[in-house]
Amino acid sequence: MKNKLNEMIIQAEKSIMSCKTYNDVLDVKAKYLGKKSDFNDLMQELKNLPNEEKPLFGKLINEAKQEISKLIDEKREELEKSKINDLLKAQAIDISLPGRDFTLGHKHVLTKTVEEIEDIFVGLGYEIKEGPEIESDLYNFEMLNLPKDHPAREMQDSFYITEEILMRTHTSPVQVRSLLANAERKPMKIICPGVVYRKDDDDQTHSHQFMQVEALVVDELTTLADLKGTLLLIAKKLFGENREIRLRPSYFPFTEPSVEVDVSCFKCNGKGCSMCKSTGWIEILGAGMVNNNVLQAAGYDPMKYQGFALGMGIERIAMLKYGIEDIRLLYTNDLRFNSQF
Protein backbone atom coordinates (compact mmCIF):
# COMPACT_ATOMS: atom_id res chain seq x y z
CA MET A 1 0.00 0.00 0.00
CA LYS A 2 2.83 2.28 0.82
CA ASN A 3 4.30 1.55 -2.57
CA LYS A 4 1.00 2.26 -4.17
CA LEU A 5 0.86 5.64 -2.48
CA ASN A 6 4.35 6.52 -3.60
CA GLU A 7 3.48 5.43 -7.11
CA MET A 8 0.41 7.69 -7.00
CA ILE A 9 2.41 10.69 -5.86
CA ILE A 10 4.92 10.18 -8.65
CA GLN A 11 2.11 9.78 -11.18
CA ALA A 12 0.32 12.86 -9.87
CA GLU A 13 3.47 14.92 -9.94
CA LYS A 14 4.05 13.92 -13.53
CA SER A 15 0.58 14.90 -14.66
CA ILE A 16 0.76 18.17 -12.71
CA MET A 17 4.04 19.04 -14.32
CA SER A 18 2.60 18.46 -17.76
CA CYS A 19 -0.35 20.78 -17.16
CA LYS A 20 -0.41 23.63 -19.67
CA THR A 21 -3.52 25.47 -18.60
CA TYR A 22 -5.59 26.12 -15.57
CA ASN A 23 -8.21 23.63 -16.80
CA ASP A 24 -5.56 20.91 -17.05
CA VAL A 25 -4.82 21.56 -13.41
CA LEU A 26 -8.51 21.24 -12.51
CA ASP A 27 -8.64 17.88 -14.33
CA VAL A 28 -5.62 16.65 -12.42
CA LYS A 29 -7.15 17.87 -9.22
CA ALA A 30 -10.40 16.00 -9.94
CA LYS A 31 -8.49 12.88 -10.80
CA TYR A 32 -6.46 12.73 -7.63
CA LEU A 33 -8.45 14.61 -5.07
CA GLY A 34 -12.03 14.49 -6.43
CA LYS A 35 -14.84 12.25 -5.26
CA LYS A 36 -13.95 9.55 -7.73
CA SER A 37 -10.23 9.77 -7.24
CA ASP A 38 -7.79 6.93 -6.63
CA PHE A 39 -7.64 8.02 -3.03
CA ASN A 40 -11.26 7.14 -2.57
CA ASP A 41 -10.40 3.61 -3.68
CA LEU A 42 -7.58 3.53 -1.15
CA MET A 43 -9.92 4.80 1.54
CA GLN A 44 -12.18 1.89 0.72
CA GLU A 45 -9.19 -0.45 1.07
CA LEU A 46 -8.38 1.16 4.41
CA LYS A 47 -11.64 -0.02 5.80
CA ASN A 48 -10.53 -3.60 5.14
CA LEU A 49 -7.27 -3.29 7.06
CA PRO A 50 -6.86 -4.50 10.58
CA ASN A 51 -7.66 -1.84 13.13
CA GLU A 52 -4.13 -1.49 14.44
CA GLU A 53 -2.85 -0.64 10.90
CA LYS A 54 -5.59 1.86 10.09
CA PRO A 55 -4.08 4.91 11.82
CA LEU A 56 -0.72 4.47 10.12
CA PHE A 57 -2.12 4.06 6.64
CA GLY A 58 -4.67 6.76 7.22
CA LYS A 59 -1.86 9.12 8.01
CA LEU A 60 0.10 8.03 4.98
CA ILE A 61 -2.89 8.67 2.71
CA ASN A 62 -3.49 12.08 4.18
CA GLU A 63 0.13 13.00 3.76
CA ALA A 64 0.04 11.88 0.14
CA LYS A 65 -3.13 13.92 -0.44
CA GLN A 66 -1.54 16.99 1.12
CA GLU A 67 1.57 16.53 -0.96
CA ILE A 68 -0.44 16.37 -4.17
CA SER A 69 -2.67 19.24 -3.14
CA LYS A 70 0.41 21.34 -2.49
CA LEU A 71 1.84 20.48 -5.89
CA ILE A 72 -1.44 21.42 -7.54
CA ASP A 73 -1.57 24.78 -5.71
CA GLU A 74 1.95 25.54 -6.72
CA LYS A 75 1.23 24.71 -10.33
CA ARG A 76 -1.92 26.77 -10.26
CA GLU A 77 -0.05 29.77 -8.89
CA GLU A 78 2.63 29.33 -11.48
CA LEU A 79 0.11 29.24 -14.30
CA GLU A 80 -1.72 32.32 -12.96
CA LYS A 81 1.48 34.22 -12.77
CA SER A 82 2.45 33.33 -16.30
CA LYS A 83 -1.02 34.29 -17.50
CA ILE A 84 -0.61 37.76 -15.98
CA ASN A 85 2.85 37.97 -17.37
CA ASP A 86 1.54 37.22 -20.83
CA LEU A 87 -1.11 39.87 -20.37
CA LEU A 88 1.46 42.45 -19.25
CA LYS A 89 3.65 41.58 -22.18
CA ALA A 90 0.78 42.10 -24.55
CA GLN A 91 -0.05 45.47 -22.99
CA ALA A 92 3.50 46.84 -23.09
CA ILE A 93 3.92 50.12 -24.98
CA ASP A 94 6.85 52.06 -26.45
CA ILE A 95 7.70 54.34 -23.58
CA SER A 96 10.18 56.16 -25.77
CA LEU A 97 7.35 57.90 -27.62
CA PRO A 98 6.88 61.51 -26.43
CA GLY A 99 4.49 62.48 -23.69
CA ARG A 100 1.46 64.60 -24.36
CA ASP A 101 2.04 68.24 -24.92
CA PHE A 102 0.76 70.67 -22.30
CA THR A 103 1.33 74.17 -23.56
CA LEU A 104 3.18 76.06 -20.91
CA GLY A 105 3.46 79.81 -21.10
CA HIS A 106 6.57 81.75 -20.23
CA LYS A 107 7.23 84.74 -18.09
CA HIS A 108 9.13 87.45 -19.90
CA VAL A 109 12.84 87.33 -19.17
CA LEU A 110 12.67 90.88 -17.78
CA THR A 111 9.92 89.83 -15.36
CA LYS A 112 11.97 86.83 -14.33
CA THR A 113 14.96 89.05 -13.69
CA VAL A 114 12.96 91.63 -11.76
CA GLU A 115 11.33 88.94 -9.63
CA GLU A 116 14.71 87.40 -8.92
CA ILE A 117 16.06 90.76 -7.77
CA GLU A 118 12.91 91.51 -5.79
CA ASP A 119 13.17 88.19 -3.99
CA ILE A 120 16.79 88.83 -3.01
CA PHE A 121 15.92 92.20 -1.52
CA VAL A 122 12.71 91.01 0.12
CA GLY A 123 14.84 88.38 1.85
CA LEU A 124 16.95 91.22 3.22
CA GLY A 125 13.92 93.01 4.60
CA TYR A 126 13.21 95.45 1.78
CA GLU A 127 9.73 96.57 0.77
CA ILE A 128 8.80 97.02 -2.88
CA LYS A 129 7.57 100.50 -3.78
CA GLU A 130 6.05 101.67 -7.01
CA GLY A 131 5.14 105.01 -8.50
CA PRO A 132 3.77 106.65 -11.61
CA GLU A 133 5.61 106.58 -14.91
CA ILE A 134 4.36 110.03 -15.81
CA GLU A 135 6.23 112.20 -13.33
CA SER A 136 6.71 115.81 -12.43
CA ASP A 137 10.02 117.49 -13.10
CA LEU A 138 10.06 118.20 -9.36
CA TYR A 139 10.22 114.52 -8.35
CA ASN A 140 12.15 113.25 -11.33
CA PHE A 141 14.87 115.91 -11.23
CA GLU A 142 14.69 118.81 -8.83
CA MET A 143 14.29 116.92 -5.57
CA LEU A 144 17.08 114.59 -6.67
CA ASN A 145 19.66 117.36 -6.68
CA LEU A 146 19.17 118.01 -10.38
CA PRO A 147 18.03 121.63 -10.51
CA LYS A 148 16.76 123.09 -13.77
CA ASP A 149 20.14 124.19 -15.10
CA HIS A 150 22.13 121.19 -13.97
CA PRO A 151 24.35 119.96 -16.79
CA ALA A 152 23.80 116.33 -15.75
CA ARG A 153 20.20 116.64 -16.94
CA GLU A 154 21.56 116.30 -20.41
CA MET A 155 22.74 112.81 -19.56
CA GLN A 156 19.09 111.92 -19.40
CA ASP A 157 17.40 113.34 -22.42
CA SER A 158 13.75 112.97 -21.61
CA PHE A 159 10.32 112.66 -23.18
CA TYR A 160 8.33 115.68 -22.02
CA ILE A 161 4.56 115.93 -21.90
CA THR A 162 4.51 119.53 -20.69
CA GLU A 163 7.41 121.64 -19.52
CA GLU A 164 6.87 120.35 -15.99
CA ILE A 165 5.70 116.80 -16.68
CA LEU A 166 7.68 114.03 -18.30
CA MET A 167 8.08 110.28 -18.63
CA ARG A 168 10.27 109.40 -15.66
CA THR A 169 13.89 108.82 -16.65
CA HIS A 170 14.63 106.61 -13.66
CA THR A 171 12.71 105.09 -10.76
CA SER A 172 14.37 107.52 -8.32
CA PRO A 173 11.22 109.66 -8.01
CA VAL A 174 9.69 106.70 -6.19
CA GLN A 175 12.46 107.11 -3.62
CA VAL A 176 11.55 110.77 -3.22
CA ARG A 177 7.87 109.90 -2.82
CA SER A 178 8.70 107.20 -0.29
CA LEU A 179 10.91 109.52 1.75
CA LEU A 180 8.20 112.19 1.74
CA ALA A 181 5.60 109.65 2.83
CA ASN A 182 7.71 108.43 5.74
CA ALA A 183 6.70 111.16 8.15
CA GLU A 184 7.72 109.11 11.18
CA ARG A 185 11.24 108.72 9.79
CA LYS A 186 11.10 104.98 10.33
CA PRO A 187 14.18 103.15 9.08
CA MET A 188 13.53 102.61 5.40
CA LYS A 189 14.69 99.83 3.16
CA ILE A 190 12.93 99.83 -0.17
CA ILE A 191 13.42 98.83 -3.75
CA CYS A 192 11.71 100.52 -6.66
CA PRO A 193 11.36 98.45 -9.83
CA GLY A 194 9.70 99.88 -12.88
CA VAL A 195 9.56 101.07 -16.43
CA VAL A 196 11.51 104.22 -17.37
CA TYR A 197 12.07 106.20 -20.54
CA ARG A 198 14.93 108.08 -22.19
CA LYS A 199 15.02 109.79 -25.50
CA ASP A 200 17.43 107.39 -27.19
CA ASP A 201 17.05 105.90 -30.63
CA ASP A 202 16.53 102.17 -30.33
CA ASP A 203 19.60 100.20 -31.34
CA GLN A 204 21.53 97.16 -30.20
CA THR A 205 22.35 98.65 -26.80
CA HIS A 206 19.74 101.41 -26.37
CA SER A 207 16.04 101.31 -25.84
CA HIS A 208 13.80 104.34 -25.38
CA GLN A 209 11.86 102.29 -22.85
CA PHE A 210 13.60 100.09 -20.34
CA MET A 211 13.38 98.84 -16.76
CA GLN A 212 15.25 99.69 -13.62
CA VAL A 213 15.41 98.55 -10.05
CA GLU A 214 16.67 101.00 -7.50
CA ALA A 215 17.23 100.37 -3.81
CA LEU A 216 17.26 102.93 -1.03
CA VAL A 217 18.21 102.53 2.59
CA VAL A 218 17.85 105.49 4.94
CA ASP A 219 18.28 105.35 8.69
CA GLU A 220 20.70 106.79 11.20
CA LEU A 221 23.45 104.23 10.80
CA THR A 222 23.84 102.83 7.33
CA THR A 223 27.35 103.19 5.97
CA LEU A 224 29.31 102.89 2.76
CA ALA A 225 30.53 99.53 4.07
CA ASP A 226 26.87 98.42 4.31
CA LEU A 227 26.43 99.43 0.70
CA LYS A 228 29.50 97.44 -0.30
CA GLY A 229 28.27 94.37 1.59
CA THR A 230 24.83 94.64 0.00
CA LEU A 231 26.36 94.98 -3.46
CA LEU A 232 28.58 91.95 -2.91
CA LEU A 233 25.63 89.89 -1.77
CA ILE A 234 23.57 90.88 -4.80
CA ALA A 235 26.42 90.16 -7.19
CA LYS A 236 26.82 86.69 -5.70
CA LYS A 237 23.09 85.95 -5.78
CA LEU A 238 22.71 87.15 -9.35
CA PHE A 239 25.92 85.91 -10.88
CA GLY A 240 27.21 83.10 -8.66
CA GLU A 241 28.74 82.46 -5.26
CA ASN A 242 32.31 82.93 -6.49
CA ARG A 243 31.83 86.47 -7.71
CA GLU A 244 33.77 89.40 -6.37
CA ILE A 245 32.99 93.07 -6.76
CA ARG A 246 35.03 96.20 -7.32
CA LEU A 247 33.91 99.77 -6.71
CA ARG A 248 35.15 102.65 -8.83
CA PRO A 249 34.54 106.36 -8.29
CA SER A 250 31.71 107.78 -10.35
CA TYR A 251 29.20 110.59 -10.29
CA PHE A 252 25.46 110.76 -9.87
CA PRO A 253 23.74 113.92 -8.68
CA PHE A 254 21.68 112.01 -6.11
CA THR A 255 24.53 110.20 -4.37
CA GLU A 256 27.88 111.17 -2.95
CA PRO A 257 30.28 109.43 -2.86
CA SER A 258 29.08 107.68 -6.01
CA VAL A 259 30.48 104.46 -7.40
CA GLU A 260 30.26 102.22 -10.42
CA VAL A 261 30.13 98.59 -9.45
CA ASP A 262 31.96 95.91 -11.42
CA VAL A 263 31.49 92.20 -10.88
CA SER A 264 34.28 89.77 -11.66
CA CYS A 265 33.61 88.27 -15.07
CA PHE A 266 31.44 85.19 -14.70
CA LYS A 267 32.42 83.88 -18.11
CA CYS A 268 36.19 83.80 -17.66
CA ASN A 269 36.36 84.11 -13.88
CA GLY A 270 38.40 87.26 -14.18
CA LYS A 271 41.02 85.96 -16.57
CA GLY A 272 39.89 88.22 -19.37
CA CYS A 273 37.61 87.41 -22.30
CA SER A 274 35.47 89.08 -24.94
CA MET A 275 32.61 89.52 -22.50
CA CYS A 276 34.66 91.60 -20.06
CA LYS A 277 36.75 93.16 -22.85
CA SER A 278 39.82 91.49 -21.36
CA THR A 279 39.53 93.42 -18.11
CA GLY A 280 38.17 90.59 -15.98
CA TRP A 281 35.41 92.92 -14.75
CA ILE A 282 31.92 93.74 -15.94
CA GLU A 283 30.12 96.93 -14.97
CA ILE A 284 26.70 96.08 -13.57
CA LEU A 285 25.32 99.03 -11.68
CA GLY A 286 25.74 102.43 -10.07
CA ALA A 287 25.41 103.28 -6.40
CA GLY A 288 26.40 105.68 -3.66
CA MET A 289 25.61 107.30 -0.35
CA VAL A 290 22.46 109.41 -0.56
CA ASN A 291 23.33 113.03 -1.30
CA ASN A 292 22.48 115.38 1.55
CA ASN A 293 20.59 117.64 -0.85
CA VAL A 294 18.22 114.76 -1.61
CA LEU A 295 17.61 114.08 2.09
CA GLN A 296 17.13 117.75 2.76
CA ALA A 297 14.68 118.19 -0.13
CA ALA A 298 12.59 115.37 1.36
CA GLY A 299 12.62 117.07 4.76
CA TYR A 300 15.23 114.86 6.39
CA ASP A 301 17.97 116.28 8.57
CA PRO A 302 21.15 115.17 6.82
CA MET A 303 23.14 115.50 10.03
CA LYS A 304 20.97 112.78 11.57
CA TYR A 305 19.95 110.52 8.70
CA GLN A 306 22.09 108.81 6.14
CA GLY A 307 21.93 105.88 3.78
CA PHE A 308 22.67 104.48 0.39
CA ALA A 309 21.02 104.08 -2.97
CA LEU A 310 21.78 101.81 -5.86
CA GLY A 311 20.26 101.35 -9.26
CA MET A 312 20.54 98.84 -12.02
CA GLY A 313 19.18 98.37 -15.49
CA ILE A 314 17.17 95.16 -15.69
CA GLU A 315 17.88 94.77 -19.39
CA ARG A 316 21.61 94.89 -18.74
CA ILE A 317 21.41 92.31 -15.96
CA ALA A 318 19.20 90.02 -18.05
CA MET A 319 21.40 90.41 -21.12
CA LEU A 320 24.50 89.59 -19.09
CA LYS A 321 22.90 86.65 -17.35
CA TYR A 322 21.52 85.06 -20.50
CA GLY A 323 24.11 86.27 -23.00
CA ILE A 324 21.57 88.31 -25.00
CA GLU A 325 23.38 90.63 -27.37
CA ASP A 326 20.63 92.88 -28.72
CA ILE A 327 18.34 94.77 -26.34
CA ARG A 328 15.64 94.99 -29.02
CA LEU A 329 15.05 91.24 -28.70
CA LEU A 330 13.55 91.99 -25.30
CA TYR A 331 10.80 94.12 -26.83
CA THR A 332 10.20 92.29 -30.12
CA ASN A 333 8.30 89.43 -28.45
CA ASP A 334 9.26 86.85 -31.02
CA LEU A 335 7.76 83.80 -29.33
CA ARG A 336 10.74 81.70 -30.38
CA PHE A 337 12.75 84.01 -28.11
CA ASN A 338 10.22 84.63 -25.34
CA SER A 339 9.52 80.93 -24.90
CA GLN A 340 13.12 80.17 -23.96
CA PHE A 341 12.80 81.67 -20.52
Binding site: E127, D219, A225, G229
Partner: peptide, 18 residues
Protein backbone atom coordinates in the same frame (compact mmCIF):
# COMPACT_ATOMS: atom_id res chain seq x y z
CA UNK B 1 37.42 101.59 -2.30
CA UNK B 2 39.00 98.16 -1.93
CA UNK B 3 39.83 99.05 1.68
CA UNK B 4 36.20 99.65 2.62
CA UNK B 5 34.99 96.60 4.59
CA UNK B 6 31.77 94.74 3.82
CA UNK B 7 28.77 94.66 6.15
CA UNK B 8 24.99 94.81 5.88
CA UNK B 9 22.55 97.41 7.21
CA UNK B 10 21.66 96.50 10.77
CA UNK B 11 18.37 98.31 11.28
CA UNK B 12 15.61 95.73 11.31
CA UNK B 13 12.86 96.21 8.77
CA UNK B 14 10.14 93.96 7.54
CA UNK B 15 10.20 93.38 3.84
CA UNK B 16 7.80 91.70 1.53
CA UNK B 17 5.40 92.02 -1.32
CA UNK B 18 2.21 93.91 -0.64
Amino acid sequence: YDKIPVSLPITPTQGGLN
